[in-house]
């Protein structure tokens, strides 16, 4: 891992390009991205559809390979890894949360959460123990034996988050995590991610088009046409009362006589 100041860098992207297709069908999805994300940081990637935000997430997650430039996760340059090594990176260093939850319908909550560990060849008892802890963390410790079909969308997404955490990854990648949820369960999901950052020091990179979700992050990166057009670091939050005090319009207006 590289260290910048006191904070370690979770990911570092330099001059990243991604091109799909050839000649006449050629599309440059990413046109030179430079981005550093520190450990324990919560970054939201925003942008209109087709801006390359999902592609960026896939490159960071080792699901796709950059055409040029370097993508380093935990100090490891992904370009130097073969397919099996990329698989190992996804297995041990990255947790994915998808819009459609992507739980395995025939497995129970705890089995879904334990899946990455089972894939990694960890003994079932040990895997279940860790999966149980991850379920506790998302507040579903009391329902380990329910199947996804028996749970609400919000609960399913929390199970998916528990699954993404169970291998204690360097990085949690979320792709429109509230896209299939109503606004109340969406808020709960976002607060859970925020809490993981604040209390567990988890690094989270999230793609979203929802301003309210993006506002939960520490930093917003705005993409357009494969380029970062804007970056905004959001100031730390004051107490609730301070926030309220800073909102104008609450003072009583003068009544007309």
């Amino acid at each position: 891992m590289t260290t910048t100041g006191t904070r370690t860098t979770a990911i570092a992207l330099h001059g990243v390009h991604k091109v799909f297709g050839e000649s006449s069908t050629r599309v440059e999805a990413l046109a030179g991205i430079d981005l550093d994300v520190g450990a324990g940081e919560f970054v939201a990637i925003m942008g209109p559809s087709g801006s390359g935000k999902s592609t960026l997430l896939h490159l960071i997650g080792g699901l796709d390979v950059a055409t040029s430039g370097t993508v380093a996760v935990g100090g490891e340059d992904l370009a130097s890894l073969n397919d099996d090594q990329l698989t190992m990176l996804r297995r041990r260093k990255i947790g994915f949360v998808f819009q459609a939850y992507n739980l395995v319908s025939v497995l129970t909550a705890i089995e879904n959460v334990a899946l990455p560990l089972i894939i990694d060849g960890i003994a079932e008892s040990r895997a279940n123990e860790r999966a149980g802890r991850a379920l506790d963390l998302v507040g579903l410790g009391s329902r380990p034996d329910h199947r996804p079909g028996e749970m609400s969308g919000g609960e399913q997404q929390r199970i998916a988050i528990a699954r993404s955490l169970v291998a204690e990854p360097v990085l949690l990648l979320a792709d429109e995590p509230t896209g299939n949820l109503d606004s109340v369960t969406g808020d709960q999901t976002m607060r859970l991610l925020r809490r993981l950052v604040d209390e567990e020091g988890q690094t989270v990179i999230m793609v979203t088009h929802d301003a309210r979700d993006a506002a939960m992050a520490d930093r917003i990166v705005r993409l357009r046409d494969g380029r970062i057009v804007e970056e905004q670091t959001l100031p730390p939050v004051k107490s609730g009362a301070d926030v309220l005090a800073s909102l104008e319009g609450l003072d009583a207006p003068e009544d007309a006589p």
Partner: peptide, 18 residues
């Protein structure tokens, strides 16, 4: 930027309120 800054404050204050 201004709106996001305030939304950042408001969403988290709202989360804490709960």
């Amino acid at each position: 930027r201004g709106a996001f800054e305030r939304l950042h404050q408001a969403t988290q204050a709202r989360a804490r309120a709960d």
